[in-house]
């Protein structure tokens, strides 16, 4: 009975050990077999599928992700070639290419990102010295050389990590370009000034246009009135001429009588109530006053 139990226990142990001999490698990972912590170069496998090794605890599998990893640097202030402060944020896509080297030098993704962060930030700082602000941000599209700069940063960083890290950089990209707080504030002020000058221009243009229209209207009004005045005068003149002609044609028939009538008429008008008349007693009117005969 006891022997039977022992047999079963041994059998289970053997099965468990046999199971630990087999290991799967996923499509997205590398596997490295270590024997008592020492990597076995022969057992470095890249092919996915089922593989075998010595059972635990003799050999252990280390797995590394084969896929592209992404890391985002924090926002860091740099100085451009033309002495302008600029805040950049970059990201880096990288992957493990040499699992053996990676295992020796870095071991974990976290420490890899830390080391990458150092390298990338220094590469950006070094590369940025060769570029002006207008190479990053400009209305002239030809002047911008961000893509080229990214490539240069990439090669610079690649050169640094090439041999000793076991990783390769797939892509470095600048994800954000910003300005330091104080500079940003002055940019805001400039933007406000720009806008208000444009607004003022619109208002002034409006006033100009309005004045033009109003003065044109005034001009048209005076033209109209002048024309009307002219016509009125002509009409009046014609009327007066007509009436003069009528009078003349009537008076021409009896000029003597007209003169008489007109003088008498004139007297009436001239000698109004305010007139003070001084008469000579010799006058014909007062002829009888002197006791003379009426002529």
């Amino acid at each position: 009975m006891k022997q039977k139990n022992l047999f079963w226990i041994i059998l289970i142990c053997v099965i468990v050990m046999l199971i630990t001999c087999l290991y799967q490698i996923h499509e997205a990972e590398y596997a490295l077999v270590t024997q008592f912590g020492r990597p076995i170069i022969k057992k470095l496998t890249f092919d996915p599928g089922l593989h075998y090794k010595l059972p635990w605890p003799f050999q252990v599998v280390q797995r590394f992700d084969k896929r592209i990893q992404i890391y985002q640097t924090p926002l860091i202030e740099y100085l451009t070639g033309d002495k302008k402060n600029i805040v950049l944020q970059a990201f880096v896509c990288w992957k493990i290419v040499d699992p053996l080297e990676f295992f020796r030098a870095i071991r974990s993704i976290d420490s890899a990102t830390q080391k990458l962060d150092d390298i990338i930030c220094s590469s950006i700082g070094a590369s940025l010295g060769d570029y002006k602000m207008s190479n990053l941000v400009s209305t002239n599209a030809e002047e911008i050389t961000v893509s080229k700069m990214e490539e240069i940063i990439c090669t610079r960083a690649t050169n640094k990590i090439k041999q000793s890290y076991g990783i390769s950089i797939v892509k470095i990209g600048i994800s954000r370009i910003a300005l330091p707080e104080d500079n940003a504030k002055s940019v805001y002020r400039r933007m406000i000034a720009e806008r208000s000058s444009i607004a003022n221009e619109y208002r002034a243009l409006g006033k100009e246009e309005a004045d033009k229209i109003k003065s044109q209207a005034d001009r048209e009004k005076s033209d109209l009135l002048a024309e009307a005045y002219k016509q009125a005068q002509i009409i009046k003149g014609e009327g007066e001429a007509e009436s003069a002609r009528i009078y003349a044609s009537a008076y021409e028939e009896a000029p003597e009588f007209f003169k008489l009538l007109r003088i008498l008429e004139a007297y009436k008008k001239i000698l109004d109530s305010k007139t003070t008349l001084v008469l000579s007693s010799d006058s014909e009117l007062l002829h009888y006053l002197n006791g003379k005969e009426l002529k």
Partner: peptide, 12 residues
């Protein structure tokens, strides 16, 4: 025309 206005008569 002469009625109602002030008149002065001068002697000859």
């Amino acid at each position: 025309s002469l009625s109602g206005i002030t008149k002065y008569v001068l002697l000859p």
